[in-house]
């Protein structure tokens, strides 16, 4: 009986000692001992491939969250000479990603020709190119792989990200973001030229009616 009590005492002391050590970070916890170390990338340099002068007036940025998925059933057939092919049951691979997209809509001001701007001392008339979708961004930090069953290569992930980008474009079109972008461009440029001293600013879009005076 006394022996059992001594053993119990030693066990209790060991547990308390271990608890105290882990509490004050003298020893790693069991959980952290078996926790896989995160894989970190090396700090490699970046190479500048191209520098380009642009003139894009971004007037609308839409942020969306979408889900894209793909499922592939891999079937295997065994061909035995003189016998019909045997088809083995299919194994299904599934990949589901949740992606946040940023759609930038605006005017490509580089398409503005010299003849598109005219004016007098206090009034100005500008014909802008129509609004367009300038970027749809789905970056790696915006993507969460929600379900991954089976092996998937980089092309499959890229295809799903592109699916999200196409969905974002069609969503921007259906929500009338091009029209909203043109309206905002008129506001921004009118404020700019009025601040520059023009009393009257007329902005028109190519092939469209006059938007504002």
């Amino acid at each position: 009986m006394k022996r059992v009590r001594n053993i119990l005492m030693i066990v209790v002391v060991l547990i308390v000692a271990y608890w105290l050590f882990t509490k004050y970070k003298a020893l790693p916890s069991v959980g952290s001992l078996f926790k896989p170390k995160p894989v970190t990338i090396e700090n490699t340099p970046v190479v500048i491939k191209q520098i380009q002068a642009i003139a894009q007036l971004v007037t609308i940025s839409a942020y969306e969250e979408m889900v894209a998925d793909t499922t592939v059933a891999d079937t295997k057939t065994i061909d035995i000479p003189l016998l019909p092919a045997i088809e083995l049951p299919a194994s299904t691979r599934k990949l589901v990603i949740i992606g946040k997209s940023t759609t930038n809509v605006g005017i490509d001001m580089q398409q503005l020709r010299d003849t598109d701007i005219s004016g007098t001392k206090d009034s100005i008339h500008i014909i802008l190119p129509a609004a367009q979708i300038l970027d749809v961004i789905v970056n790696p930090s915006d993507v969460e792989v929600f379900i991954e069953v089976g092996a998937w290569d980089n092309t499959a992930v890229a295809n799903l990200k592109n699916k999200i980008r196409y969905l974002a474009i069609s969503d921007a079109m259906s929500r009338g973001l091009l029209a909203q972008s043109e309206k905002k461009a008129v506001d921004v440029l009118t404020s700019f030229f009025k601040a520059a001293g023009y009393q009257k600013v007329i902005i028109q879009f190519r092939g469209n009616a006059i938007k504002m005076e």
Binding site: T44, K49, Q50, I51, Q52, Q56, S61, A62, E64, D171
Partner: peptide
């Protein structure tokens, strides 16, 4: 799906294209 629509007035004037090697 839509999280937010933000109205801006940003004039982007420079675009850099970079490449990076990712090693792990």
């Amino acid at each position: 799906t839509i999280l937010a629509i933000q109205q801006t007035g940003k004039l982007a004037t420079a675009e850099y294209t970079l490449t990076k090697i990712i090693r792990a």
